[in-house]
Design a binder for these strands. Structure first.
Length: 423
RNA sequence: GGAGGGAUGGGUGAGCGGCCGAAACCGCCGGUCUUGAAAACCGGUGAGCGCAAGCUCCGGGGGUUCAAAUCCCCCUCCCUCCGCCA
């Protein structure tokens, strides 16, 4: 949600900035609604004031026993009450329209975000080297199935396509990675661990930005008006919904492990085969509530902490800056970490770190009291995966595979699993 | 799932349809006193919108009324008991 006052103060400038990400955005209808809202609101205020004043007079007349005058005033006030009711009904309708329009607007891209579409992401840096193979590296599905780490056929029987099932050492590897990442962020990076509920209510997903515009991406339990978690970001941003935090308590840093569910409606094809694009995956998510002054520093911190995971696993990756046209609705700036998958000869996103500035804080009414005792301000919220395991799992297999189809585990993983080689 | 009780300001907790943004106590802030502190005493102390006048907010929504924290209806959440259950 954007600040209406900013939209009002500089409509052309705001529209120009928003069109960097979506050329179709038009603020005129919103501003017109806002103008009507303020006009109606002023009229309603005036009528209420008249009523409040008359109410005191009514009370006085009643006390003084002046029944005739009181009755006359009452008759007069019926007209005021009727007009107020009519004005307020109209006002409410306009407010709903305005609210709906505002909820659909995306965040404003930060000035440091380049123009461009999805294909035009900017590579910032890379770490490590592409592993060289004296043979043709295999796809992680081929490796995993040969080693008994994944059972996609039975998963499809139990649930359906694109719901992976980890088996044997695959299940152990997945679980070990999740646990190790939780410990890393909790113990070394200072995050408070959270194991949240996986279903959330409608208000939560409005705050996060999933609703109303992207509701079709979310699995729903309509009987109960509950929805399956698509990313722990959507849960963690609601921890402090409708709260006022103290500046001394910022930043608040949380790390959560959750399964993530996404309908991925309309995405198909060879490109998303195996663990690349699935309806359910596991993810360790970092989340921070900060002051506006410190949020961009926090974004850099999130990226470094996501990178730390890959560095300790010895996996080659690169870091990219998303262009304006590729930002998620709630993000002002996003930096991705992409791991190298030699079986497919390309990089895939394993982490996406975003600063949402006050966009989610406004939707969820999340504020803080400045240390100097000044007015309440909205916090900034940031999220970053560190990491999503499905593609991490794939990268470990593909980057460490040997010609015979076995996998030489990185020392850290070998230690976690108590064996140096899969296969 | 069934029965009952509750939701008021940072906390506890009063509140007859009008004089209630709301008593009291606690907490917090400031002051007096003190070498310093405690105690005691005095004063102050919610938020939003607005240049202001003023308007709004007593879990949420709707209704009755000239007027609702207060009356009616619906919902949510919390507590107790029963049932079921990892």
């Amino acid at each position: 949600m954007l600040d209406l006052r900013l939209l009002r103060a500089d409509p052309e400038g705001m529209e120009r900035r928003l069109r960097r990400r979506d050329p179709g955005i038009d603020l005129k209808p919103i501003l017109a609604r806002d103008e009507e809202r303020r006009r109606l609101s002023a009229r309603a205020d005036e009528l209420r004031r008249k009523q409040n004043e008359a109410s005191e007079a009514m009370a006085r007349l009643a006390r003084e026993g002046k029944a005739a005058e009181r009755d006359a005033l009452r008759e007069e006030l019926k007209g005021v009450a009727a007009e107020r009711k009519a004005v307020e009904e109209r006002l409410q309708a306009v407010e709903r329209e305005l609210e709906a329009a505002l909820l659909a607007l995306p965040n404003v891209p930060h000035d440091s975000v380049p123009d461009g579409t999805k294909e035009e992401k900017v590579a910032l840096r890379s770490w490590g080297e592409k592993p060289q193979f004296p043979f043709s590296p295999k796809h992680h599905v081929a490796l995993a199935q040969a080693l008994g780490l994944l059972d996609l056929e039975r998963a499809a029987k139990v649930t359906g396509a694109r719901f992976p099932m980890y088996t044997g050492d695959g299940a152990r590897l997945e679980f070990a990675l999740l646990h190790w990442m939780m410990e890393l962020h909790a113990r070394e990076h200072g995050y408070t661990p959270v194991l949240p509920p996986i279903l959330a209510n409608r208000a939560s997903f409005v705050t996060s930005g999933q609703f109303p515009k992207f509701a079709s991406e979310v699995y729903a339990c309509p009987e109960d008006e509950l929805f399956l978690n698509p990313t722990a970001e959507a849960l963690l941003v609601n921890l402090h919904r409708d709260e006022v935090l103290a500046e001394e308590d910022l930043p608040r840093k949380y790390v959560a492990y959750t399964p993530c569910f996404r309908r991925e409606a309309g995405t198909y094809g060879e490109e998303g085969r195996g663990l690349i694009r699935v309806h359910q995956f596991n993810k360790v998510e970092l989340f921070q509530y900060t002051t506006p002054e410190t949020s961009y520093g926090a974004l850099e911190e999130l990226v470094r902490q996501a990178e730390a995971v890959l560095q300790r696993l010895g996996l080659h990756y690169r870091v990219t800056l998303l262009p304006a046209g590729d930002l998620a609705q709630q993000a002002a700036k996003t930096i991705d970490v992409e791991v190298w998958l030699p079986g497919q000869g390309r990089y895939y996103e394993v982490s996406s770190c975003s600063n949402c500035e006050d966009y989610q804080a406004r939707r969820g009414n999340i504020r803080y009291r400045p240390a100097d005792g000044g007015k309440l301000r909205y916090v900034h919220t940031l999220n970053g995966s560190a990491l999503a395991t499905s593609r991490l799992f794939a990268a470990i297999l593909e980057q460490n595979q040997r010609e015979d189809g076995t996998v030489a585990l990185p020392p850290l993983v070998a230690d976690l699993l108590g064996k140096p080689v899969l296969g």
